[in-house]
Nucleic acid binder design. Structure first.
Lengths: 171, 171
DNA sequence: TGCGAACCTTTGACATTTCAAATATCTGCT
DNA sequence: AGCAGATATTTGAAATGTCAAAGGTTCGCA
């Protein structure tokens, strides 16, 4: 019996294996999606294993790390592509862990500003260094030229997608 | 006051704006991530608006659609990059909605096979057509050559990442 | 000055995600 | 037979994700 012991069955190989005739755009999309998912999962796994942190938390701290004065939750939401309601809970948990602090400025009491604590900054610095290393590791087999080229070309994809959003269409 | 009214703040512009000196691999990753997220969200939005469905459901149905005989939950999990525990709930809900049916084959009672119902196949066919259209739409501004080239180059990225997973490293 | 519109955050209801642990079932070997 | 180990699915806890609605707070203009 053959009984594929495919340790690493690949979404695409199956999705497209029998249907390689799909439109190029669809193929590209499926490949982007599966690749991104693959890498995300690896990063997630390592963040958890080595730092006990999650990817959204890492994302959020990354933003706060470069804004020493902190950010309003709405800003944080936009920058991380995390929805508003989500930021609340995320920040709450990070505050409980002592990595983030919330303040309401005097000028405007509608606002909540989140900023990294000392401990948060220390932790993030360590995570960021590791994170960068992981990426270089995972992309080690790629021709450096290709890395730069890809960056630029994916920019085109992004711009195109941005141009055809249903929400942004009415401008 | 300036008070940026940036309707469309972009993750990258902020992440990297002040720090364009980051390693190319990191830059590429951030761009892939944000692009994928952008497109995913758009697809999600449209699936919900036009079909009342979610992206994971669409994914799952796509697999079942091409396997008329149905798939075991474990297979389904591998093919969709959805974890095991996850498939259970997904299939449960789809079954409740009448789009999927679960059967336990006689040979092996550990197994649950999920397959699309008539209604499920009909719904999926409609969604798939729309989905393909959305992608072509969102990628309309890209040079067709670039689409094919990107597909191939992202394959390199994926292969490299696959080669450096912590889990698969011990072979 | 006072009210309605605009703004910011939180809340709530659900669906999905991850991981790990628990359940069932089957298989192979003695 | 009979039990250890492999397989397949389910369950459970915690975090994240969406969306929409509800809360306060501030601002602009009559």
């Amino acid at each position: 019996m053959v009984e594929a012991e495919a340790v690493d069955v690949d979404l695409e190989m199956i999705v497209q294996g029998a249907h390689a005739r799909s439109k190029p755009e669809l193929r590209l999309w499926l490949r982007m999606l599966s690749t991104t998912k693959l890498i995300s999962q690896e990063i997630r796994r390592r963040l958890r294993a080595e730092f006990g942190a999650t990817l959204p938390q890492f994302d959020l701290m990354a933003q706060l790390y470069r804004e020493k004065d902190g950010l309003r939750l709405g800003e944080l939401s936009k920058r991380t592509m995390v929805t508003n309601g989500n930021v609340t809970g995320l920040v709450e948990r990070l505050e409980a862990d002592g990595y983030v602090q919330r303040v309401t400025p005097q000028g405007d009491r509608r606002v909540t500003v989140a900023k990294l604590t000392e401990a948060g900054a220390t932790l993030f610095a360590a995570m960021a260094a590791a994170h960068e290393g992981w990426l270089q590791d995972m992309m080690a087999d790629i021709d450096p030229h290709a890395v730069a080229a890809l960056w630029s070309e994916i920019g085109t994809v992004k711009a195109s997608a941005n141009n055809h959003l249903s929400g942004a269409a009415f401008e």
